[in-house]
């Protein structure tokens, strides 16, 4: 039954040739999940392990460098990028649980480190997979929904959509859940207004954007929204909490694990 979404997901990400299922993977936890939202990291590990993979989490990893890079401080970002590359020495996939960090690691490292050893950098970037992309296109997971019927919305980050070209894979995973109905909110492809330091440097524009995003999500009859990017979720959930709304976003790793494990929080 899930053949169709899977097939279309593969077609949409056909810019890339996917490797066969590996025995081991690295997890790039991202600094946001590490500091603020660790449960999603643990849930991602559990989901990957259930697929029979061994998940390695190098303790030396830190931030991908995006905050400095996006602020124009490329030299500072570059040393951080070189440091990350050293933390993942084995030739196995690196799964990233946030789309924008994935975009940074996969695409911007190539630009930023073009004067370094090209082959080493290119090989590293080639090993980067966004979490939903990896589940869909490399593992080709088959999910068994154990949860009660419910409606959810999906927020795909701009990075997943436009940099990683993987906005279709999150959808494909949710569509595998038999009891979950995916509802589409208005302006679904529009940015939530996070943009890292943009949210602080231009707080009023960013604020107007997130207020609209919240309005469109609340206008659906979904019970929650799901996303694979903590940057957006920190922004959207923060605005929801500020407005004293009970509606929240949940990381897709936690959501998939919960649905397929059968516990309904």
């Amino acid at each position: 039954m899930p053949a169709l979404p899977l097939a279309s997901a593969k077609r949409h990400t056909s810019k890339r040739v996917y490797p066969p299922k590996p025995a081991q993977v690295y997890l790039f936890g991202t600094c946001l999940a590490d500091t603020l939202f660790p449960q999603s990291g643990l849930d991602a590990i559990e989901l990957l392990e259930r697929q029979g993979l061994e998940v390695l989490f190098p303790q030396g990893q830190s931030c991908c460098g995006q905050p400095a890079y996006n602020s124009g401080y490329e030299d500072e970002a570059r040393v951080v990028a070189r440091h990350q590359i050293k933390q993942f020495p084995l030739d196995i996939p690196i799964v990233v649980i946030s789309g924008s960090c994935g975009g940074m690691l996969r695409h911007h490292y190539l630009d930023m480190l073009k004067h370094d050893n090209d082959l080493e950098v290119a090989a590293f970037c080639e090993r980067i997979f966004e979490f939903t992309e990896f589940l869909t296109c490399v593992l080709e997971v088959k999910l068994q929904d154990q949860g009660a019927p419910e409606r959810v919305a999906l927020h795909t980050s701009c990075a997943a959509r436009r940099e990683m070209d993987v906005h279709i894979t999150g959808k494909a995973l949710l569509e595998q859940l038999g009891q979950v109905e995916l509802v589409e909110h208005d302006y679904i492809s529009e940015c939530c207004g996070f943009g890292g330091t943009f949210a602080v440097k231009h707080g009023d524009i960013s604020g107007a954007m997130v207020q609209d995003k919240v309005k469109h999500l609340l206008a659906t009859d979904a019970v929650r929204y799901v996303s694979a990017d903590w940057g957006c979720m920190m922004n959207i959930n923060g605005a929801l909490e500020y407005q004293q709304e009970a509606f929240r976003g949940e990381h897709i790793a936690s959501y998939l694990l919960r649905r397929t494990r059968g516990d309904n929080a």
Binding site: A199, D204, V210, M234, G238
Partner: peptide
């Protein structure tokens, strides 16, 4: 600053992911 004019600020988790992974 500007962040909390329309949002709340999340608190760091009780334990960071790296510690939880190690414990696990």
């Amino acid at each position: 600053g500007a962040w909390t004019r329309v949002r709340t600020l999340p608190k760091p988790a009780r334990r960071p992911l790296r510690e939880l992974v190690k414990q696990r």
